[in-house]
Amino acid sequence: MTAARALAAELSKLLSLPATWLTIAGTLAANLLLAVAFAQAALRGTAATRDVVDVGLASIGYAQAGFVVLGVLAACSEYIGGQIRTTLAAMPHRARQLAAKHLATAIVALPAAALTAFCGVALTALVLGDTPATFGPILGVTGYLLLTTLIGVAAGALARRTLVAVAVLLGYFFVAGPLLRDNLDLAKYLPDTAGAAMWFPAGGALTPAQGALVLTAWTAALIAVALAGHHRRDA
């Protein structure tokens, strides 16, 4: 009962925040633009592949930034205007409150992720005049984006500062991660490379299922750390 109320409150918070909608809309729009760009590149034969699903999902590599930001905003918005005090006064059971926030963010991120992945592929199919052969990778991408969003929530709850969390996570996902991937064999077990195996198996040594498992383990571990930190620290 209290858990359901906490979830309702967290959902209400997330949905009444303009930043949530702006981030989702911005990500969706940016993903569509990039999908067109990738499709154009494929038409000119400068891309490595012409498979509709591969080309249509290539833009996700960039669009994931929007989901990371969505997760971080969900967590860090608590620390604007002293809202965290109101939150903890209303929901003093901290672990339950933060767990509810993760769940609420997942509920919002899931349809957004599925929509982003599907629209990108659909638009690419339109530009390339071809139909997708398989939908498996779209599911993989949806799961990947969902887990990435949750990593954003957990990291945001730990950092408490939007800019810090965004800089660290995006610095990892876009700069450090890819460089490690090229230089370090163990990098295939890191969250970004393992996660990429969920929808772009060509690059990694892991199967999509293994990749999903590894990324889920990373996400769960980070959420556990965030819950423990939230419980122990002064607000």
């Binding site: 960039y62 930034a65 995006l170 876009f174 700069v175 090229d182």
Partner: peptide, 11 residues
């Protein structure tokens, strides 16, 4: 920050 970091990526 997001735009610039994303655009610093390898590709």
């Amino acid at each position: 920050l997001a735009l610039f970091i994303v655009n610093t990526s390898v590709v």
